[in-house]
């Protein structure tokens, strides 16, 4: 469980996060949705401590971020997996080395076990036979999938994904969505996903937070979002013809 209390983040004079309060439960896929520029990425980075916040508190199962010493913070971070919006793969390493990077650093596994784990993770994101290639030799969507494989390699307790399925074809996008939901349930992970893909919202959204201009404008379950009367949400969700039709039918 991650608890967020009234966090604010400023860059210079502009306030990007304007006091967001919410919590993310274990074993649930939480989705952060909102327009481009709403502050989703800044929120996620503040959540993991990459951005220092200007106000508010963040708790990881009663451990307060920002009140920990360096070792405690490092220990907490070995329990995190993160997929960055721009992948952030290590481009000097090949795909397999990327996936097992954290295993090399923090686990006692043998080389064979690590290889097996890498193959397993890559297979789950539907990637095979690319172990020895460099990130630069992969397509955008493949890189995204490697980033997901890297994030789940160490069996994280907390998983953060910034637009994990943007740039993927619809089939792979759904595959990734389902994978994220599957492992969230299977390993009881606290999962937070940024997205502006309405498909994901319908497919895997169990808990949804809608951010508008840096503030939480709506929060609720996956079913509720299709029936809410909140204008900001309906404007966002039903900007697509398809979803408007779905709403009319239901």
């Amino acid at each position: 469980m991650i608890e967020v209390r009234d966090i604010q983040k400023k860059f210079g004079d502009t306030t990007v996060l304007k006091g967001i309060t919410t919590s993310f439960r274990q074993g649930v896929t939480s989705l952060i949705i909102g327009e481009s520029g709403a502050g989703k990425t800044v929120f996620l980075k503040s959540l993991v401590g990459l951005h220092g916040i200007d106000q508010g508190e963040i708790f990881y199962d009663d451990r307060q971020l920002g009140k920990m010493n360096e070792d405690e913070q490092k220990a907490l971070r070995t329990e995190m997996g993160m997929v960055f919006q721009g992948n952030a793969l290590f481009d000097s390493l090949n795909i397999e080395e990327n996936v097992i990077f954290a295993l090399n650093m923090f686990s006692e596994m043998s080389a064979a076990e690590k290889k097996e784990r890498a193959d397993f993770c890559l297979e789950r994101v539907n990637l095979k036979g690319v172990n020895n290639r460099k990130p630069a030799e992969l397509s955008g969507g493949m890189k995204k999938r490697v980033a997901i494989a890297r994030a789940i390699a160490l069996n994280p307790k907390y998983l953060f994904c910034d637009e994990p399925n943007s740039g993927l074809d619809p089939r792979t996008a759904i595959l990734i969505d389902n994978l994220l939901q599957e492992i969230t349930h299977e390993f009881n992970i606290t999962t937070v996903i940024n997205t502006h893909d309405m498909n994901s919202v319908v497919e895997i959204g169990e808990h949804i937070i809608f951010i508008k201009d840096g503030a939480k404008a709506w929060e609720g379950g996956g079913e509720e979002i299709l029936h809410t009367d909140n204008k900001a949400v309906t404007d966002f969700v039903f900007s697509s013809e398809l979803f408007r039709k779905i709403r009319e039918k239901s």
């Binding site: 980075k45 993991v48 990459l50 490092k74 220990a75 907490l76 971070r77 070995t78 995190m80 993160m82 960055f84 721009g86 952030a88 793969l89 290590f90 481009d91 990077f101 954290a102 650093m105 923090f106």
Partner: peptide, 17 residues
């Protein structure tokens, strides 16, 4: 280039200094 492509952030989130 590791900084601007967020590779340094990725290390940090993994718990590597």
């Amino acid at each position: 280039s590791m900084r601007v492509s967020e590779q340094i952030d990725a290390l940090e989130v993994m718990g590597v200094n």
